[in-house]
């Protein structure tokens, strides 16, 4: 479930990044790299788990599934927070700088 949530987040981020390109003001590339990197790593984790559990891997207990979903959503939220911090620090549109320094007429 965590893998599935992260893959969907990676796909949505990549589509958004493509729509924003070539300007790339929103720095969505960071999100794409994070989510795709984690997706690839969790895919490996899933393959190893499948090799151990076989078909049982696809029928997890509801409690485990809920926990994995909760984890997946938390991972997506963490990724968004990292991206937001980097966006505000980079401040490509100068919005934060504009709010901090008032212009004199």
């Amino acid at each position: 479930m965590t893998l599935l949530v992260t893959v969907f987040a990676a796909i949505v981020a990549t589509v958004k990044w493509y729509k924003d390109a070539p300007k790339g003001e929103m720095k969505l590339g960071i999100l794409c790299w994070m989510y795709w990197g984690a997706s690839i790593m969790w895919l490996v984790d899933a393959v190893f788990e499948y090799a151990e559990l076989k078909a049982e891997y696809f029928t997890p207990a509801p409690a485990d599934m809920l926990n994995d979903l909760f984890l997946g959503l938390s991972v997506v939220a963490l990724g968004l927070i990292i991206w937001l911090v980097r966006l505000l620090v980079a401040d490509p549109r100068g919005v934060v700088r504009g709010a901090l320094f008032q212009r004199k007429a």
Binding site: G29, W33, M34, W36, G37, G79, I82
Partner: peptide
């Protein structure tokens, strides 16, 4: 490096 850092951070 982006793939590795991003994935490692979330893992």
């Amino acid at each position: 490096t982006n793939l590795l850092w991003g994935g490692s951070a979330l893992l």
